[in-house]
């Protein structure tokens, strides 16, 4: 009798899990395996192309320092964007979670998620209009300031960082908000009753307790930013060559899919390695 029940239970669990896993298998695992296979070929096996198995695509990464330099540049971009997002997003999440109550919180929350609702390409081009010379930002500043300023951030690293932070800021706000909201207000009152000032409370109670959310948000930002190509290309112009844009070039410009695939997997490996190295530190920080 109990085994029948257990079997039914197992069936139910299977029924609930399988749609998601089937989808993930079809939508991610299969294309990804195909890409992994491509990365070990000399040519894309479409049409009449001659192709053979090779590890050249991976060797290419090590033959010149260009790729490694670009990868480092991308990782640095990821760190900067993550850091700026944390510095901008965490205080915002704190105010939303702990200071503002009631209806105005919902309205402010809506504003936070707004970037998600607009098309990313439209968003980036809007930034281009704002940041370029004689653009919205420059005209606006000159209208307010008593002296003339030249603001042309277009095609620079700051432009890329601004665009990326705009795109990914909601992640850190949402994850931090959830973590901060779970902190019992009585903990803060208790610390205050023991004469702790605001900085002590932030440092010893709020930060440690919201760290899981903060880190989750940071990872959610860091990983896609390292591989980003749209913002660097449109807002960075000539300085916007990153590891992500090189991969994109292989697929859409040079049509060297195997090299593009190989570079993608190197990026994936490096990101996983970074997270693996960081995870013991992160885990210790959480306990």
């Amino acid at each position: 009798m109990s085994t029948v029940l257990a079997n039914q239970e197992r069936l139910r669990i299977f029924g609930l899990l399988s749609p998601a896993y089937l989808w993930l298998t079809v939508a991610i695992f299969l294309p990804l395996s195909a890409m992994l296979y491509f990365s070990f070929l000399s040519e894309v096996p479409f049409g009449d192309a001659e192709w053979s198995h090779t590890t050249e695509n991976y060797e290419a990464f090590f033959q010149t320092s260009t790729y490694a330099i670009l990868l480092w540049k991308s990782i640095r971009l990821g760190l900067i964007v993550t850091l700026v997002s944390v510095l901008v997003g965490f205080p915002c999440a704190y105010v939303l979670a702990k200071v503002i109550k009631g209806r105005s919180r919902e309205a402010l929350f809506l504003l936070v998620i707004l970037p998600f609702w607009s098309n990313s390409l439209v968003r980036i081009f809007s930034w281009a209009i704002v940041l370029r010379g004689n653009g919205v930002l420059e005209i606006g500043l000159n209208a307010v300031l008593p002296f003339e300023v030249d603001v042309n951030l277009m095609f620079s690293t700051p432009a890329i960082v601004i665009g990326l932070v705009h795109s990914y800021l909601p992640y850190i706000i949402l994850t931090s908000y959830l973590a901060l909201q779970a902190i019992d207000d009585n903990l803060i009152d208790a610390a205050r009753s023991m004469s702790a000032n605001k900085l002590t409370i932030l440092w010893r109670i709020i930060l440690p307790l919201s760290l899981p959310g903060l880190l989750a948000g940071a990872v959610l930002i860091f990983v896609p930013v390292v591989g980003s190509f749209m913002e660097p290309r449109i807002l960075g112009g000539r300085v916007g060559t990153y590891f992500g844009t090189v991969i994109e070039d292989q697929f859409v410009a040079v049509y060297n899919w195997p090299l593009g695939a190989a570079l993608s997997f190197i990026l994936l490996a490096v990101v996983l390695l970074i997270l693996a190295v960081a995870s013991p530190v992160l885990r210790r920080a959480q306990t």
Binding site: A190, S193, I205, L209
Partner: peptide, 13 residues
């Protein structure tokens, strides 16, 4: 002052 809260409010970390 010293204060004790209803749910104790011990710092879980």
């Amino acid at each position: 002052i010293g204060m004790m809260f209803q749910n104790y409010a011990l710092f879980p970390n």
